[in-house]
């Protein structure tokens, strides 16, 4: 990879300042960024490691909300959110593999917004609030298409707050090589309605399947989805599955998520 200056700030302010320099980029766990840099598809001049920044690690629960620090690893979420938000913990426990989960962070995943990543579906499906060093961003405003987010250059995800639903489930159909989601669906049932977020399937990245949300909000049963078909035209087509296949999987995974929601 191209060389860069490695800086390891200890406060959010220092990190934000470091990110204002030309060609600077934040480094979370690096589990996606490092392979990208090895291919020289990303060549930051300064890499600002966030793992040493104080106050950005951990999982806490209060008042029906689970808050996850921006540099909390997937392994920590899988372990520490298990009682407060089991569906979120289960999702975190399915990302990558054990070694990847020991390094990869929620902030890194959401900032990258890979169209096949798991976390965006949990954030969007839960209606999470993404807190940065500057503001709070609603998940509905945060995801802006494949690899696109509302984050500004020097903005750092400090924490993510997930409203805990009555019942939820994440169903992931593996892309067998990368172990990302070929299609993953996060279903969350709140008192005010149901949210359904789909990852892995669309050319626009994570999205809400609003027709399914309406049907499930009326009746939270898998059968309520039987007549629904999602349009395949904006789906991803690649060597692992066609647009039609992904559209079909969205339906299957959504039904399975409803059946297994707890």
């Amino acid at each position: 990879m191209n060389n860069f200056e490695f800086v390891k700030p200890s406060t959010v302010e220092e990190a934000s300042a470091a990110l204002q320099s030309e060609g600077a980029q934040a480094l979370g766990g690096g589990q996606t960024l490092l392979p990208t840099m090895k291919q020289r598809l990303a060549s930051p001049e300064t890499l600002v490691s966030l793992t040493g920044v104080e106050g950005m690690v951990g999982v806490s629960a209060s008042d029906g909300t689970v808050t996850v620090g921006g540099t909390t690893t997937h392994a920590q979420v899988a372990a520490e959110a298990a009682s407060a938000y089991p569906a979120l913990a289960a999702l975190a426990g399915q990302i990558g593999d054990p070694a990847v989960r020991n390094r990869g962070t929620i902030g890194g995943s959401l900032a990258n917004n890979d169209p096949a990543a798991c976390y965006p579906s949990a954030a969007l499906g839960s209606g999470a609030s993404i807190s940065t060093n500057k503001r709070n961003i609603a998940a509905d405003d945060y995801f802006q298409g494949m690899f696109e987010t509302a984050l500004e250059e020097d903005e750092i995800i400090t924490s993510v707050s997930f409203p805990v639903p009555e019942a939820a489930s994440y169903q992931k159909f593996l892309q067998p090589a990368s172990r990302f989601a070929l299609t993953g669906v996060f279903v969350a049932k709140f008192p005010g309605g149901v949210r359904v977020a789909v990852t892995g399937a669309s050319n626009n990245g994570v999205f809400r399947w609003t027709e399914a949300e309406e049907a499930l909000s009326k009746e939270f049963r898998a059968d309520a989805l039987m007549d629904l078909r999602i349009n395949h035209l904006n789906m991803i087509s690649d060597l692992h599955g066609s647009q039609e296949y992904r559209a079909h999987l969205v339906g299957v995974m959504t039904r399975r998520a409803v059946e297994s929601a707890s």
Partner: peptide, 23 residues
């Protein structure tokens, strides 16, 4: 069941890493 080395019609290798070639 899973391994497949695939080129597109322009000769670009689509399964060029363990991210797309299923071991």
């Amino acid at each position: 069941m899973m391994e497949n080395c695939v080129y597109d019609e322009n000769g670009q290798l689509l399964s060029g890493s363990f991210m797309d070639y299923t071991m």
